[in-house]
Amino acid sequence: MSGEVVFVLAAAAIFGLGVHGLLTAGHIMRKLLALNLMLSAVFLLLIVVPARIDGLPDPVPQALVLTGIVIAVSTTAFALALMVRLFRRQGHAAIHPDVDPRMLGHVTGRTSAGPQEEHDRGSGSR
């Protein structure tokens, strides 16, 4: 019983660390690492916790974790590809934490859609 508690606490700690990393890290690569950390915590919990229902290991959570790993791998690969695209376009791989000034602005008068905006739109439908 106490062995389980250790695993559950570890899972909770790892998940928390991952959330912190995801929200505070600047570089997208770090965010993705944090995301994978959270995934590991979820998988750990899924494997450990249901095992206590009876002595035998339960096959269902293992099937779930297997599916989860497949999703995690493809999500990470896709996010990395997206990061590379973003890096090529803006020259660095961070998400600007500040609110885009174009989203604020006032009712009519001065806006917003400057040359950058036009450029962005235009290149969308090459």
């Binding site: 995801l22 997208i28 965010k31 995301l35 999500t75 896709f78 996010a79 997206l82 990061m83 695209r85 973003l86 376009r89 803006q90 998400i95 600007h96 885009d100 174009r102 950058q116 905006e117 450029h119 962005d120 739109r121 290149s123 969308g124 090459r126």
Partner: peptide, 14 residues
């Protein structure tokens, strides 16, 4: 392919 759309996509993904 604009920076705004890629950034939005990345944020949505994360």
């Amino acid at each position: 392919d604009g920076i705004a759309a890629l950034t939005a996509a990345m944020r949505y993904l994360l």
